[in-house]
Design a protein around this nucleic acid. Structure first.
Lengths: 197, 197
DNA sequence: TCGCTTTCTTGACACTGTGTAAAGTTGACA
DNA sequence: TGTCAACTTTACACAGTGTCAAGAAAGCGA
């Protein structure tokens, strides 16, 4: 065997991705993924020790295919802090719907499963770094609200950009992605950027 | 039997509350609640059809004991819109840590259990009404941002006040309750209230 | 061509937690 | 004394995850 048609591992990842996306991260069991990949359930366990690991690997796989790091990094090349903030919000908010399926499945496991919690926390770390970078750019420009410490600003921006907030407005609240992005951008500016007198 | 010491039903609710609070809503099973109440697991099912119903009843029980409605209503009696907004944010944010245990358990069930989803949605409806009232007060004062429709403002305020955001800042992010409340208050003002020229 | 190794399949099973079912116990009350 | 309601005890069905062990099948080297 060895090289069947497509290698089994990526085929499992593709299957997981597809199911997670179409079912919005809900009710996707190990057996479903296996069937979708055209492989036995045990074969999945041959490649991934457990569900959390498979979901974690799926996120990384999506990141790779969608070149997420590149897109987030690009947002750091804008000129002044304000444009950088906007660019980062744009990049991240645009990213959320693309990973929402996996994100939701991963978030649902967090309470019971340490591995899932770690996988998700890791994912969020990248986002926080982007927030911190944007805040730093503002601070360097002197456009960060003067009574707002950079660390606090970073936390608040990360809060604003959380997947849960996207979920609440877009998925549950019926907001369009476009409207959501614009609203978050405005909120970020209103909350973090010093008002010019 | 009939009136043992304390009636069984409230004793179960108290037990659920206590466990949910001490364990932060995590890993509280029907059997645990039964044991804590000094009652058999089946007795719990004699009073509540399922876990979602028990959790829902527990929230309502807490609300009753803590007089939540009164506290939220009080926030509507402040004078101008801005004070009302602050008062409502204060009231709701102060409420979150008191129900966090049940809230978390209920939120964790949402994906699988329609009854749980409904119980939580119902809980959130009360909060949204408060948001809408605060926004309306602002609008009446003419202090709502002019280009922000009331409905949008309500959605954004509800987003800001979500339990998930509290969770992220206070529980996971190490913010003190006080700092959290102040930050949310400021963000609400910055995002919703028209800047005086 | 033989045998070894790797990858995958098949089928069975342990475990956890929810919810159901049925028979027995106990105290209140008429 | 008998009945009713509330509760206990025991057993079980069910779903989904993860484990285990016995094969099958293809590639590969000798």
């Amino acid at each position: 065997m060895s090289s069947d048609e497509a290698e089994t591992r990526p085929r499992i990842l593709e299957a997981a991705w597809r199911l997670l996306e179409t079912r919005a991260g809900q009710g996707v069991r190990m057996g479903d993924i296996a069937r979708e990949a055209g492989v036995s359930r045990q074969a999945v366990y041959l490649h991934f020790p457990n569900r959390a690991a498979l979901l974690g690997a799926t996120t990384r796989y999506i990141d790779e295919v969608k070149r997420v790091d590149d897109r987030l990094r690009a947002s750091r090349e804008a000129g002044d802090g304000l444009t950088r903030l906007d660019a980062f919000v744009d990049a991240w908010c645009g990213y959320i719907p693309e990973i929402y399926g996996v994100a939701r499945a991963l978030m649902a496991m967090q309470d019971d499963d340490d591995a899932a919690a770690e996988a998700w926390a890791d994912r969020m770390r990248a986002m926080r770094e982007g927030c911190a970078a944007a805040v730093k750019a503002l601070k360097n420009d002197g456009t960060l609200k003067p009574d707002l410490p950079a660390a606090a600003a970073t936390d608040l921006l990360a809060m604003l950009l959380s997947v849960r907030n996207w979920e609440q407005l877009v998925r549950d609240g019926g907001w369009s992605q476009r409207r959501y992005v614009e609203a978050i951008k405005r909120m970020a500016r209103d909350s973090l950027v010093a008002t010019k007198i």
